[in-house]
Simulated assay, not measured.
Amino acid sequence: MSRGGDGGMRLLPWTGPDGQRCYVSADDDGGYVSRLADRMEAVQLETGTEILGYATTLLADRECRATSDELRFCAQRLIEALRDALRVAESRGGRIGVG
């Protein structure tokens, strides 16, 4: 299956009910779903930036007062943020012919 940039498909920043990848026609650049995807990608990247700031603060504590539950929660959110950022990068790379 071809990807964006050549009339192909754009990878969306969310998955289907069973975790499958979702796509929209790359010809739909100005369409509702594409605009929604653009907004979702922006929110995902902003959230990742916020989580990174939280993690940086949490780990900067030299006395390590964070509990194991706090560190586990932070690691889980960082994993989610990285997964989202990689998906955004893949989607955008596909639209400019990289990948």
Results as ranks from 00 to 15, higher is better:
residue 2 S to A: 10
residue 60 A to L: 10
residue 50 E to D: 09
residue 35 R to I: 15
residue 90 E to M: 05
residue 77 R to Q: 14
residue 3 R to Q: 05
residue 71 L to C: 10
residue 17 P to T: 06
residue 59 L to F: 09
residue 30 G to M: 06
residue 64 C to S: 12
residue 29 D to C: 04
residue 66 A to F: 15
residue 14 W to P: 02
residue 52 L to G: 04
residue 73 F to S: 11
residue 3 R to M: 07
residue 18 D to C: 07
residue 42 A to E: 15
residue 22 C to S: 08
residue 71 L to I: 15
residue 50 E to M: 11
residue 68 S to H: 06
residue 24 V to T: 14
residue 69 D to T: 14
residue 20 Q to R: 14
residue 39 R to F: 09
residue 77 R to S: 05
residue 59 L to D: 06
residue 97 G to Q: 09
residue 33 V to F: 03
residue 16 G to W: 06
residue 22 C to Y: 02
residue 12 L to S: 03
residue 97 G to P: 03
residue 24 V to L: 05
residue 3 R to W: 04
residue 77 R to H: 09
residue 41 E to C: 11
residue 38 D to S: 10
residue 14 W to E: 08
residue 68 S to I: 08
residue 46 E to D: 13
residue 74 C to V: 14
residue 73 F to I: 11
residue 61 D to Y: 02
residue 84 D to L: 03
residue 58 L to S: 04
residue 62 R to W: 09
residue 19 G to D: 01
residue 21 R to E: 00
residue 4 G to Y: 00
residue 74 C to P: 00
residue 54 Y to K: 15
residue 43 V to N: 01
residue 89 A to R: 00
residue 58 L to I: 15
residue 44 Q to Y: 10
residue 21 R to T: 06
residue 7 G to P: 03
residue 63 E to Y: 00
residue 6 D to F: 05
residue 34 S to M: 13
residue 16 G to T: 10
residue 89 A to K: 00
residue 13 P to L: 02
residue 67 T to G: 13
residue 22 C to D: 05
residue 48 G to D: 12
residue 74 C to D: 07
residue 73 F to G: 03
residue 29 D to N: 05
residue 65 R to F: 08
residue 88 V to M: 04
residue 47 T to W: 14
residue 91 S to E: 07
residue 58 L to H: 02
residue 78 L to H: 05
residue 10 R to Y: 04
residue 81 A to E: 01
residue 77 R to P: 01
residue 36 L to H: 07
residue 25 S to K: 12
residue 54 Y to D: 00
residue 48 G to C: 09
residue 75 A to V: 14
residue 28 D to K: 07
residue 44 Q to M: 12
residue 60 A to Y: 02
residue 23 Y to H: 14
residue 14 W to D: 07
residue 61 D to A: 03
residue 89 A to M: 01
residue 12 L to W: 03
residue 59 L to R: 02
residue 46 E to T: 13
residue 52 L to S: 13
residue 5 G to S: 12
residue 94 G to D: 00
residue 54 Y to R: 15
residue 62 R to Y: 10
residue 71 L to K: 01
residue 7 G to N: 07
residue 39 R to Q: 12
residue 54 Y to V: 14
residue 62 R to A: 13
residue 93 G to A: 13
residue 39 R to G: 05
residue 66 A to Y: 15
residue 95 R to V: 12
residue 63 E to C: 00
residue 41 E to I: 05
residue 2 S to G: 06
residue 2 S to V: 13
residue 51 I to A: 06
residue 54 Y to M: 13
residue 51 I to N: 05
residue 14 W to H: 08
residue 95 R to Q: 14
residue 45 L to W: 09
